[in-house]
Structure formats: structure tokens, C-alpha cells
């Protein structure tokens, strides 16, 4: 997937002109760390953040499905970003869970560490650099330049598509 296609997915920017018009608008992102990198996810799609939970493994599931989590009686699918990003590392049960509700499907993204909610301005947004490994880039919307780091924006839609959640049209 190439970088320009990624940019097109951004929720509020259909074209470059639009992007410019929205330049001053800010958007909030839930920041987290995976594999020592800073990532963010649209705060709108995050239902809650929960502490490490017991995970019930599902035999024969794809490697990135770590298992199922009992979230107060609801069953959420725990998705390991380490595996999804093909880092070669394995998620462990002591990781934090970012619970996202995608069209009624509960997904828990397993991450190393939870950061703050960051407010980002569109002017700081860039397309995903071509050098980012495809395994990661295919799931990103783009990158925000912050003062001291880069925050890659994980597209929950792309993650959903990747793990086979069909969009209800």
C-alpha cells in the first residue's frame, strides 16, 4: 500500500485542499507505546483502557489474535500489535489493553505502555514515510511530528479490515 493512499483515509481530509482548510483543527489521540515506538489512535474509537487481563488463547487463531478477554461479561478479542506489526516479539499477558468498539465488535489492542491523550494539529501531519516497514505502514494513517518524537497514527479501520471485521454498510 502506498503512502498517498494512506493519507486519503484520514477521516476529515478527502483531498489536499481540504487538508489545508482543516489545518488549524486539532484532533485528540490516545498515545501508547509498542516496541518502544510512540503510536496514537483516534480517541473517538477508544472505549476504555484496562489493566492487564487474563487472556484465553484460541487454538488455530491467527498469530496476532492473542486470545479472548472477559470484559465485564462481554467478550473482546485481544489483538497483539507486536504480532500485527510483525516485530518478531510476542505479546505477553501483562500488557495493557486499549479497548476499541468497532461496529459492535470489541477489540482489545495489546500494547506495552499507555501514554497521555495528545492533541494534534493537522499542520503537523505527514504521510507515512516510505521507509516504514510495510507490516506497520499498512495499518497507519500517517505520522504526527511532536516536539520530541514522532507519533504514528494507527488506523482502527485498517486494523479492523486486517483482522477481518466486515464493515456494515
Amino acid at each position: 500500500m502506498n503512502a498517498s493512499a494512506n493519507a486519503g483515509v484520514l477521516s476529515h481530509s478527502g483531498s489536499d485542499a481540504n487538508a489545508h482548510a482543516n489545518a488549524q483543527k486539532t484532533q485528540q489521540y490516545s498515545a501508547f507505546y509498542v516496541h518502544k515506538h510512540l503510536y496514537g489512535i483516534d480517541v473517538q474509537s477508544v472505549q476504555e483502557v484496562v489493566k492487564p487481563m487474563p487472556v484465553t488463547p484460541v487454538p488455530h487463531a491467527p498469530p496476532y489474535v492473542i486470545g479472548l478477554i472477559n470484559l465485564r461479561g462481554q467478550i473482546a478479542t485481544a489483538v497483539g500489535l507486536l504480532e500485527l506489526f510483525e516485530t518478531g516479539k510476542k505479546s505477553t499477558p501483562d500488557m495493557m489493553n486499549i479497548i476499541c468498539n468497532i461496529e459492535g465488535n470489541l477489540i482489545s489492542l495489546m500494547v506495552d505502555e499507555i501514554g497521555d491523550v495528545l492533541e494534534m494539529t493537522r499542520t503537523d501531519f505527514e504521510e507515512t514515510p516510505a521507509t516504514v516497514p510495510v507490516a506497520v505502514a499498512r495499518l497507519l494513517e500517517g505520522v504526527f511530528k511532536t516536539k520530541d518524537a514522532l507519533m504514528s497514527v494507527v488506523s482502527i479501520e485498517k486494523v479492523a479490515a486486517e483482522i477481518g471485521i466486515k464493515k456494515k454498510s
Binding site: V58, P59, H60, A61, L68, I75, T77
Partner: peptide, 14 residues
């Protein structure tokens, strides 16, 4: 069974 596990035919639910 939850999302992303359609391909797992071993289980019908949880």
C-alpha cells in the same frame, strides 16, 4: 466467538 476469528472453524462461540 468475537471478531477476527471467522477463520477458526474449531469453535462455534465462547
Amino acid at each position: 466467538l468475537g471478531s477476527g476469528l471467522d477463520a477458526v472453524k474449531l469453535f462455534s462461540g465462547a
